[in-house]
Design a protein around this nucleic acid. Sequence first.
DNA 1: TGTATCACTTTTGTATACTGAGTTTAGGCG
DNA 2: CGCCTAAACTCAGTATACAAAAGTGATACA
Lengths: 231, 231
Amino acid sequence: MKKEIFQDFPAFLGKDPFMPMRDMIYQYLRELIITRQLEPGSRLVEEDLGEKLHASRTPIREALRKLELEGLIKQHKGRGLEVGEISLEDAMDLYALCTELEGYAARLAAATATEEELAELGSLLDEMEFCIDRNEKERERILHRSFHMAIYKASKNKRLSKLLSDYNDYLQLFRSYYISTPHTLHQTLEEHQQMVEAFRKHDEDLAEKVAKNHIHMAQKAFQAQWDVYNK
Amino acid sequence: MKKEIFQDFPAFLGKDPFMPMRDMIYQYLRELIITRQLEPGSRLVEEDLGEKLHASRTPIREALRKLELEGLIKQHKGRGLEVGEISLEDAMDLYALCTELEGYAARLAAATATEEELAELGSLLDEMEFCIDRNEKERERILHRSFHMAIYKASKNKRLSKLLSDYNDYLQLFRSYYISTPHTLHQTLEEHQQMVEAFRKHDEDLAEKVAKNHIHMAQKAFQAQWDVYNK
DNA sequence: TGTATCACTTTTGTATACTGAGTTTAGGCG
DNA sequence: CGCCTAAACTCAGTATACAAAAGTGATACA
């Protein structure tokens, strides 16, 4: 495990000086894993991490337990933890599940979305279009996330919202497989527009269908890239 | 917090002498909470628990963190943890979510169930009928759980299976609200029979419909009892 | 040369000690 | 008598120390 990876932890710490150390460490490691700065298979030794992050084993352990529960890290045969490999089977399961859940969330959103929520979604859409034209990828990524979050919130089901929000982060891992080309970005934008359109008409069936299709497209893009990488 | 509640922990420990203490404590506390032996609002002080369960704070903490993540216990404003109160809103959200997920699992099961899986479900059904006639409630409860697990497994989606399995345990908490009368048990049995029937015919739409209805019935029973308790 | 055993190393599991934040309580002052 | 303040207490957050399990390697014996 290279030490340089952990160089920017002090800056990360500064973000919220009141957050408990364990949560800091959790979020920090989670980000490293999801952005693949920590590669699958990397070993995570409590004492090493403690030294590198200038913390004792106790908060490290609690962060690791949480990551383990999320499925991002796994118990290494025999002993120690390591960053989990992603398997095609798991990815397919997750995409299938998310397809259902997004569809359901969209259905609920279509049924109950308020004018404010629709306006919010509309303005996010405009911003995203702007970003795509200017090729501001990072900002586009953040807006994309906000867009989906806004839908989850509009579903008015807190459990569903939390679940999808967690899964969305996880899917981030898979997205690193297929690079967003301008083409796929425009494609995605159009799908988003269709969704908002369906919400505006309060057409539940259409909203569900379009949302499901949206995730399904992402799944197909992932699988295509997977097949390229793994012959 | 009464000490007597924790009397049977040594026996619980005996079940698997190789399981780490933190997992023992987690499972033990979880069962106490779900069966309401630890009432909502009970305070959970690390040091107290350590003394009563003859363990140090470290494994206790790790067990508590896990329970907190599951939403079974909450950080009490200012200080300490306590067993979470259940809110009607959260229960309704969870039932709605489970309705969707069970429906989806049933659809998948109907599509792909093998002869072995169908036979397994059939025999569980027979056993349950036997138990209901003899009024063996505890055994019926365990079989009920196994029945749903068998469906999840038949869906062949591991993520979905894990998620529903966790939620099922959680719903146990809500079930303690409405007592299972022979009438509702027979009603439930019939719903289960309809589900297996749909699986046998590989009728996905029917399976989904019946499964959703099954959870929806449970939701209605819960809400009715809630309304009685809370005026 | 191959294998079995034993000491050693690595790393997690558990216990305990210390610290600091927030709460309660008791005493003094108006 | 009530209110404000400060000391004491409670309890979680973090650090450290010790124990135990499990791999690793070296040595001795066949």
